[in-house]
């Protein structure tokens, strides 16, 4: 039997909201340590990796690891029947479940839904646990804003790191521009900008993926960008007390 209860069901809704435009069908994996998900977008350029640790749930039980194939669109239809302040419980009964049950619980209402599961044959990538040569932490809303602004000018965005900070730049048909974000150690942790640069990087990415990734900014006030030269970048949103959502994007490289 598998059972996982979110004290804050709104959080689960935010996670689904964050990934719904990146991936369509996903395998949700549950085992004794928690719930995880890994899925690529249809163009195989971006990858979503979610980890929710067992300790972050109000209640968690998983006797045998299981894989639940879900349509994100259908999952969202069911989640629309819950309130943002509801507690949400996910549950399966059988060893090889064909449905995933949802209980939405508020002060004055309990709702039950069953979502039909699918058998999905999905390519899983072995993402190495590497050290990155530049790691930048910055406010997630600031990153969202920069991507939106520069994305107007060109479809590719450049990222350059140095000991002084991080620079975003574009070159398009209409002209070019750059935005430098300075390091700061303000008392407000959500406004801090930190750069750990062992080796500076200079990379280019398709900004439209960043604009999709930025839907996850509702999960955390800070975003962590980890980069190495000519390698995929990872954008990480820490989900407080529960785990993290990591979004990988392959770079664009000079032909």
């Amino acid at each position: 039997m598998f059972e996982a209860k979110f004290e804050d069901g709104g959080l689960f809704k935010k996670i689904v909201e964050a990934i719904k435009e990146l991936v369509k069908n996903v395998n949700l994996e549950a085992n004794g340590t928690g719930i995880s998900l890994q899925a690529m977008d249809t163009s195989h350029v971006a990858l979503v990796a979610l980890q929710l640790n067992e300790k972050g749930f109000k209640k968690y039980r998983c006797e045998k690891s299981l894989t639940m194939g879900l349509s994100i669109e259908n999952l969202q239809k069911i989640l629309k029947c819950s309130g943002n302040d509801d507690q949400i419980t996910l549950r399966t009964q059988d060893e090889e479940p064909t449905t995933l049950s949802f209980t939405f619980e508020s002060k004055n209402r309990i709702s039950e839904f069953q979502l039909n599961l699918m058998s999905l044959d999905q390519e899983q990538l072995g993402v190495p646990d590497t050290e990155y040569s530049s790691v930048v932490r910055m406010p997630s809303n600031e990153f969202t804003k920069i991507c939106r602004e520069l994305g107007n000018i060109n479809e590719a965005i450049g990222i350059e790191t140095s000991k002084e900070g991080i620079k975003f730049y574009v070159k398009g048909d209409i002209g070019e521009g750059q935005v430098s974000v300075k390091i700061n150690d303000t008392e407000k942790p959500e406004e801090r900008v930190e750069c750990e640069v062992d080796e500076p990087v200079n990379l280019s990415f398709a900004v439209r993926y960043f604009n999709l990734f930025n839907k996850a900014s509702a999960l955390s006030s800070q975003v962590i960008l980890s980069m190495s030269q000519d390698q995929p970048l990872v954008i990480e949103y820490i989900i407080e007390e529960m785990g993290s959502l990591k979004l990988y994007l392959a770079p664009k490289i000079n032909d």
Binding site: L125, G126, I253
Partner: peptide
Amino acid sequence: YLQQIPLSTFFPSR
């Protein structure tokens, strides 16, 4: 000209 590289170039299939 910038070319988009797929993720499978970097990460092996499991």
